[in-house]
């Protein structure tokens, strides 16, 4: 399948990656080439085959609901680009 500029711009918005106008066309060509190549999967008869999400044993293991970690707010905030009064700080969201 060939992606056009508009589709690339749309998926870039979904992925929250700003793309300059000039890069839409070349990226559309690159991504289309990759998609055309993966489409060879349509040759494979997969009727009746269940999708495989993981090779790990199915079903997540259960464990006791215990506190094993925590009380390290400052250590975590140390990595943040901006903090305020013990919180992560971001541009204003609500007027």
């Amino acid at each position: 399948m060939a992606l056009d500029r508009a589709t690339v711009a749309h998926i870039a918005t979904l992925a929250r990656i700003r793309l300059p106008e000039a890069e839409l066309e070349p990226l559309a060509a690159e991504l289309s080439q990759i998609l055309n190549w993966v489409e060879q999967l349509s040759e494979v008869d997969t009727s009746g085959v269940a999708p495989m999400a993981s090779v790990a044993a199915s079903g997540l293991p259960m464990r006791e609901d215990q506190v094993t970690d925590g009380d390290c707010r400052d250590a975590i905030l140390d990595n943040a680009p901006r903090t305020a009064r013990g919180f992560f700080a971001v541009p204003k969201v609500i007027e």
Binding site: L19, N79, V93
Partner: peptide, 23 residues
Amino acid sequence: DGVRFGLRVGAASLDEMYELTRA
């Protein structure tokens, strides 16, 4: 996304900050 660690490119809105940081 530029909020909790690593690079942040400053912007006026949150969405713009995400997009510019990831770009």
